[in-house]
């Protein structure tokens, strides 16, 4: 398990981080545990494939033919833009059309969650129509251009997932500290009713968060598909659903609604899952799908001790506690 595999694990984690941080971003303001988030992931992938199909209209783009054109290389990078936009707009539409009206009526968190399940089913069906009419229900991963840098094999998709994650993290950092709408975003997350009394247009701010969140999910979806292909040989539409629990695991481990906590959690889970998968197949000779036990186990255990996830841990206090116990031990020893 060399550097190459470590890079792959981290890149996988970054793709997960993109998807999960999107969820976190709008959860922080709207408090919707959105199960349709997986649909935005698949939407991004479909938009990417459709964009490439349109660019090569007339060639054999239906069925497995698309795999030949959709390979992830420099000249196809532009197709990430429609992936971002489509996923973002669908997310925005679902907020404006479903969640905002429900929130205005005073729906409980549980009702919002259940509504998101309904939305997930509807979106899934719509995607099946698109994927079905292009004959794309099952596809293989189209793969990505590979480079060798300093003796390390690295694919363009891997490089791009790091770059995109860094860009997204930077963008959000700038947005949340330097712009008024970003500060408003944090203000709503911190005290929604006061934000309303302060004249902040809650709808506009939340809509921005949903657009960005959905867009990030779409980007992560394309990258995840390039890395792993259809999960477990299932239809490509199920990509989002199959990754949804990992997304939630990362978001919950990071402390629901904490953007940076989620990114760190996703990277941790990415390494844990991929290393465990390799270990499971090589040493235990069991299916790598069981490796999901490890990230889920980590998340569940963390939740049991820190019900608010990583963001809820008071690190300074924890470190102090450890230090104090150590000092106490020394005192006792003397």
């Amino acid at each position: 398990m060399g550097v190459t595999f470590m890079v792959y694990s981290l890149a996988w984690g970054s793709a997960l981080a993109l998807m999960a941080s999107g969820l976190s971003l709008y959860y922080s303001v709207s408090k919707v545990a959105n199960f349709a988030h997986g649909s935005y992931v698949s939407m991004g992938l479909l938009a990417y494939l459709l964009a490439i199909a349109f660019a090569h209209w007339g060639s054999k783009i239906t069925g497995f033919g698309i795999d030949h054109y959709a390979i992830f290389n420099i000249s196809n990078l532009w197709a990430l833009i429609p992936a971002f936009l489509v996923a973002g707009l669908v997310s925005l539409a679902s907020f404006a059309g479903i969640f905002w009206p429900l929130m205005k009526r005073g729906a409980t968190p549980l009702q919002l969650l259940v509504a998101s399940i309904g939305l997930m089913f509807v979106l899934r069906f719509l995607m099946y129509i698109v994927a079905g009419s292009m004959n794309w229900i099952t596809l293989w991963t189209p793969g990505s251009t590979t480079y060798h840098i300093l003796g390390v094999r690295i694919t363009l998709a891997e490089i791009l997932s790091f770059v995109l994650l860094a860009l997204v993290a930077g963008l959000i950092a700038l947005l949340e500290t330097k712009t008024l709408i970003g500060v408003s975003l944090r203000a709503i997350a911190s005290n929604p009713s006061l934000a309303e009394a302060s004249g902040i247009d809650s709808f506009k701010v939340q809509a921005l968060a949903w657009f960005l969140g959905g867009g990030f999910a779409g980007l992560g979806g394309v990258l995840m598909f390039i890395f792993t292909g259809p999960p477990g040989g299932r239809p490509i539409v199920e990509l989002g659903w199959m990754n949804l629990l990992s997304i939630f695991a990362a978001a919950v481990l990071g402390g629901l609604g904490s953007f940076y906590g989620t990114i760190i959690a996703a990277l941790i889970l990415g390494i844990a899952f991929n290393q465990a998968a390799a270990w499971f197949t090589i040493y235990l000779n069991v299916s790598s799908s069981l490796a999901l036990l490890i990230p889920f186990g980590i998340t569940l255990l963390t939740l049991l001790f820190f019900p608010q996830g990583l963001a809820g841990i008071n690190w300074r206090k924890l470190v102090n506690k450890i230090r104090i116990t150590r000092v106490e031990e020394e005192v006792v020893r003397r």
């Binding site: 545990a33 036990l293 889920f296």
Partner: peptide, 14 residues
């Protein structure tokens, strides 16, 4: 609530 829903879902997946 939200944390619990997701934790139980993960347990079911496991």
């Amino acid at each position: 609530e939200d944390y619990l829903a997701i934790a139980l879902l993960m347990a079911a997946q496991i």
